[in-house]
Simulated assay, not measured.
Amino acid sequence: MDDHPVHQIAEVIRHVGTSDRNFYDRYYFNCHPRLAGGDEDPTGPWLIFGLGVYPNLAVTDCFVVVRHGDDHIVVRGSRALGDDRDDLRVGPFRIEVLEGLQRLRISLEPGHGDVSFDMEFTADAPAALEPRHFQRQLERVTFDTQRFVQTGAWSGSITLDGKRFDVDPDTWRGNRDRSWGVRPVGEAEPPGRRAADTDSAGFFWIYAVMRFDDFAVVSIVQEQRDGERVMGDARLIWADPARGIEWLGRVEHEITFIPGGREPSSAILRFIKPSGATTVVEATPQLGNYIGFGTGYGLEQDWRHGMWQGDEKVEAQRLKVSELDPTMKLFCPVDHVASFTLTDADGTVHHGEGLFEFAVIGPHDQYGFADYVDVTPV
């Protein structure tokens, strides 16, 4: 890449423009069979894949997590980061950019746990930049990231427990994103004074990527415990690039929780423009993938994104969703395959499906959670 005129700073490409240890550059993909009738569980594996590069930690790592029935299956790998940023391999994992912003291939060779796959993602809508994610805590910049998102279809195959699932683009959907910048990664840092900063306690998060017939809708909400917004956005992305991207308005949410926890049984999102024109989305989560368990998002202190694991390491684990620690489930986002019903400002109804990623970690005043382990009454 240093032979191309793409430099941003007076450094070679592999050196980023900050020495912050927490700089990262990541791929995320999800893949699921289409919902039957829009209101039933998918019949095949619900697969999520990620690969991250951490230049200032000299590490790259990768994971796949599959939800199928009551099974939670993880394969993860880590290696020392070399000089070639176009080398998107981690042990048996690989990403290939076949056509930028249009087609990508992901694969996991057989022989590493109970899952393998070889699949190609083909976009069905333009990639859309999301708002910059910036957050500062006691002078320290903890988040400063950029991300784009894109919906698409999948082709190829997944093998799970020796059974092959043919992945056909007519029936297998998903979305992918690319994000990069600064966010907490690697070995946990001593919090220092930040441990006493209770004003910013609480993390409320909605990330919904909805695919309808002619367009996609992406909505993001991040709030602190009192409802103060860190991020809030909703945009409609037309599949026809000539029609562009439309801002839908400010976001309001109404979550109904499953008794005894903090998982959503349903959600209503309202996108309200200054004129009062309102778009309403009813979301129904169908099947959750508990991405915090085993993948590096922070629950296990021996495997976090960007943590040094040696020159190369590959591991696999298998858990039962019904046996996951209910307290630990309160501390990680859950990625749900969901059905969506959108009623636009003119009253037209659209049906779709996609991702409903949700978390409410710590106190949150709107929903009555006063502490980290409070749950919805049974």
Rank of each mutant, 00 (worst) to 15 (best):
A128T: 15
A283M: 10
L236C: 06
Q317Y: 10
S157C: 14
G156W: 02
L81N: 01
R304I: 01
G52A: 09
D70Y: 06
A80Y: 13
V6G: 11
D197P: 03
L98Q: 08
R34M: 14
R176T: 05
Q8F: 11
D168K: 08
L129K: 08
I220A: 01
K163Y: 09
I106M: 07
E246H: 13
Q8E: 14
L319F: 12
A267G: 06
I220M: 05
F331G: 02
V375Q: 05
R85I: 15
R178T: 05
L88V: 06
F293Y: 08
W303N: 02
S179G: 13
T198E: 15
D144H: 13
P259L: 07
G37V: 11
Q8I: 13
V53N: 01
E109Y: 09
T341R: 11
R173M: 06
H32M: 12
M231S: 09
W154N: 01
F23R: 03
D302F: 03
D168Q: 14
N30Q: 09
Y367I: 04
H133Q: 07
D41Q: 14
V378D: 15
G232E: 04
A316T: 12
R105W: 10
F356L: 07
D199Y: 12
E323L: 06
D233E: 14
R194F: 03
G352E: 00
F358K: 00
A125V: 06
E130W: 05
P55C: 07
I237G: 00
P333L: 13
M1F: 11
L269R: 00
S200Q: 13
A345E: 08
E254I: 02
Q150T: 00
Q150A: 10
L248Q: 04
G347W: 03
G192T: 10
F212E: 02
L236D: 00
E282K: 10
P326D: 12
S200E: 10
I245L: 14
F358N: 00
R26Q: 08
F63R: 01
Y297K: 04
M328A: 13
P45I: 00
V378E: 15
I206G: 01
G44N: 06
Y28N: 08
G52H: 03
D86N: 14
H7M: 11
W172I: 04
M119R: 01
W247P: 05
G38R: 08
G227W: 05
D365Q: 09
A370Y: 08
S179A: 12
C62M: 12
G232W: 01
